[in-house]
């Protein structure tokens, strides 16, 4: 019964919430949607956390997508022991990267008080879901090798059965608990998209990777800042 809920009801519910919720948010709340950047408040920890986390999750997302779209090619690729090690090793690299980036971001969010004004409860739900994903994913990679092969041959047919509206949950129900947790949190993540920072998935910020420096114009009195007496009162600058 629990399996029917998690693997049959949850994916469709999440997908519906994602589609209807996103349309609703764009149509009615467009100007209220924001990922609330905190780069101007703290940038060093953000650089490491964000870079690690994003490169990790993007690579892993496309890795999972390939396993779903071309399972036969993945099975053939994994036929050679070295190629299998390269694929699984690469997945582990980005898994660890995603996990460590996420840890940095959570640490930053909790310890840096400046960020608290831009933090909502939903952010912590998002962190909890992502952290569960990261830990269960690394656990699977290490404790249940070789995920790339059995995902392609066992779970890919399950995902396909969802898309053709004939869900076959027999195989996924027989999976170990950690795999079930990994799959179910992925579905929850899809359902959270319209109501959290995940909304930025839908605007495809590809240009972030290649974009030029952004011109930031400060809305404050520059002359006050230029005047060094504001920093060292009573002492006048000698070079201008």
């Amino acid at each position: 019964m629990v399996d029917i809920f998690i693997f049959m009801a949850l994916p469709y519910t999440s997908l519906l919430i994602m589609i209807i919720g996103s349309i609703f948010m764009y149509r009615l709340q467009a100007f209220k949607i924001s990922a609330l950047s905190t780069q101007l408040l703290e940038s060093k920890q953000l650089y490491f956390g964000s870079q690690f986390m994003h490169w990790g999750i993007i690579t892993l997302f496309f890795g999972h997508l390939l396993g779903f779209l071309i399972p036969q090619s993945i099975i053939v690729w994994n036929g050679d022991a070295l190629r299998l090690l390269v694929l699984e090793g690469t997945a582990l690299v980005f898994g660890i990267m995603f996990f460590s980036g996420l840890c940095i971001l959570i640490y930053r969010r909790i310890t840096n008080k400046k960020l608290h004004s831009l933090t909502s409860d939903m952010d912590f739900i998002v962190y909890a879901v992502l952290l569960t994903q990261a830990i269960s994913g690394i656990w699977i990679a290490i404790a249940l090798p070789w995920g790339s092969s059995w995902f392609a041959s066992v779970l890919s047919p399950y995902l396909k059965s969802l898309f053709v509206l004939q869900p076959d949950i027999a195989a996924v129900s027989a999976m170990p608990l950690v795999v079930k947790i990994h799959i179910s949190t992925a579905f929850i993540l899809i359902g959270l998209i319209p109501f959290s920072r995940f909304m930025h998935f839908l605007v495809f910020p590809f240009q972030y990777v290649f974009r030029a420096y952004q011109v930031v114009i400060w809305n404050r009195n520059k002359s006050t800042i230029r005047n060094s007496t504001a920093i060292n009162p009573e002492v006048k600058a000698k070079n201008n």
Binding site: K44, F48, L85, G89, L92, V93, I96, S100, P145
Partner: peptide, 21 residues
């Protein structure tokens, strides 16, 4: 070899990102 590949690969990328900073 799999664990070594995973952890050393991560360290290599981490160094690259530190250089990036």
């Amino acid at each position: 070899k799999f664990y070594f590949l995973g952890f050393s690969g991560f360290l290599f990328l981490a160094i690259l990102f530190f250089a990036g900073w």
